[in-house]
Nucleic acid binder design. Sequence first.
RNA 1: UGGGGCGUCGCCAAGUGGUAAGGCGCGGGUCUUUGGAUCCCGUAUUCGAAGGUUCGAAUCCUUCCGCCCCAGCCA
Length: 565
Amino acid sequence: MADQSPARAPAAPLDFIRSIVEQDIAAGRRGGRVATRFPPEPNGYLHIGHAKSICLNFGIAGEYGGTCNLRFDDTNPTREDVEYVDAIEADVRWLGFAWSAKLYASDYFERLYGFAVDLVTRGLAYVDSLDADQIREHRGTLTTPGKDSPYRTRSVGENLDLFARMRAGEFPDGAHVLRAKIDMGSPNLNMRDPTLYRIRHAAHHRTGGAWCIYPMYDYAHPLSDAIERITHSLCTLEFEDHRPLYDWLVRALFEGDMPQQIEFARLNLSYTVMSKRKLLQLVEQGHVAGWDDPRMPTIAGLRRRGCTPEAIRDFCARIGVAKKENVIDVAQLEHSVREDLNRRARRVMGVLRPLKVVLTNYPDGQVEEVDVVNNPEDASAGTRRVPFSRVLYIEQDDFLEDPPKKFFRLAPGREVRLRCAYFITCTGVIKDARGAVQELRCVYDPATRGGDAPDGRRVKATLHWVSAAHAVGAEVRLYDRLFSVEDPEDAPEGRTFLDHLNPASLETLGGCLVEPGLADAAPGDRFQFERLGYFCVDPDSRPGALVFNRTVSLRDAWANIRRRV
RNA sequence: UGGGGCGUCGCCAAGUGGUAAGGCGCGGGUCUUUGGAUCCCGUAUUCGAAGGUUCGAAUCCUUCCGCCCCAGCCA
């Protein structure tokens, strides 16, 4: 009997980081452990770029039986806030991940201070009393080496005394800093005696007034990793130059297994900006309604927009992880969103720009209920009953008095199907004084109830509709890309990304009409409005005052044809 | 003109000396009570360029070109 190994799907190619992790495990490095961390600074909301990092770090931990900590890199009290801590936790959870431990760099302040004293004692760090400008001057330039600070040769005893007094609050902000004593001539600027601690008389959101000196990222990060026994410390490309310092610190203060920093390219999305600074600017200057504005690439914004965590995870899995600078087409994100929502969203009918239709041969006052499929992708979603009557509304876009070629929707004399209801034929067009179409007169064919003609005749279009007497009013917010150019950062001299803001990124439609079953839809509920797109109920929505956000439109073949002609 | 990275289809991305995966997008077709979805088919004789090594190169060597990052007491 042949020992048949289980059939395996062809292995998806591993990204370079997972390859390293697998090699490390195979080689038994660090005892074969895998421990990652996601280390946000709580100074802003998480965005889709963070989602890439979250999926990577938590994903690897999950795939290789490891752990992943959520660690707040809260070393700069002047920019951080608990509001952000709470939002970040909520976003990570919403994305579907559970951290092994929730930690804060500030948890390590006392130990970090102890490490610094150790470095000073061993002559590896010193207190510098140059001011910020002087330090910059001494640093040299990209092509010329720096110069030693005159304070670089202070005695260990003096350094110890000064550092203790820095902590004790004896000096004002900026009076001194603690620096690593490495090499002012290094071609890597990060190694030219980097600052380890600075004085900041500022309350910290967690440690309050306990400290007036705070460690720098470059100091706190590697040591926090080492304390947590992180094995693979994943970060973005711009930290590549910091790796020698990372290694220098860990080697100086720890023995045994070292965490390995690996850098990957951050995510960029076309037609958007991703830096926290710019997103903050959009919020603070009121260009958007807040961090969770549905046009924002923040997790909170995408959530409010109606994206699912599954779609975001799928997107992150598809874009890959590599070291090449990249700009992902937003269409890629939209694809993941459509694919997920297509599978799960309940279909409903909603008319965004209503056009009145009177069925002249339909009995006045009669109401019947037609059965409508809830989701053709999912038979178990069943059907529902939707009221049908003499006066209806259809979409303005679905009628053209003078239809061009390839326009298959309603036109004078033309017969189309009303979804799951009847065939109707347009018999008259009523216009206002200015010639604008105001209302349509149609006749219906009673024999086509349900949407099929017993004589087998066919129509080329199926329209969505609502019954005038039963429909529920709603506000619908249509979103377009926030910026009108692919790369908003690419602004000419004297201009900024704000000059590329798309003035039409939000279109609010009032007077929309949706089928009555939606009357009690709750915030967060997602639907497909047939033939239009995916929509979700906004938190602004109230009973009797529904508000929908369009998450993403459905592909529209006619719109494509029209665009090309 | 210092250091660190990166260049494979419009956008991502596999490939690590044996004769260019896949996804998105795009084009065409099928099907359809959503012009949705599905399903087909097509989309790089070529891997930034030029030399070289080799029976054989996207993969090795040399030179060149282009792009990104670094001079915070930010992360």
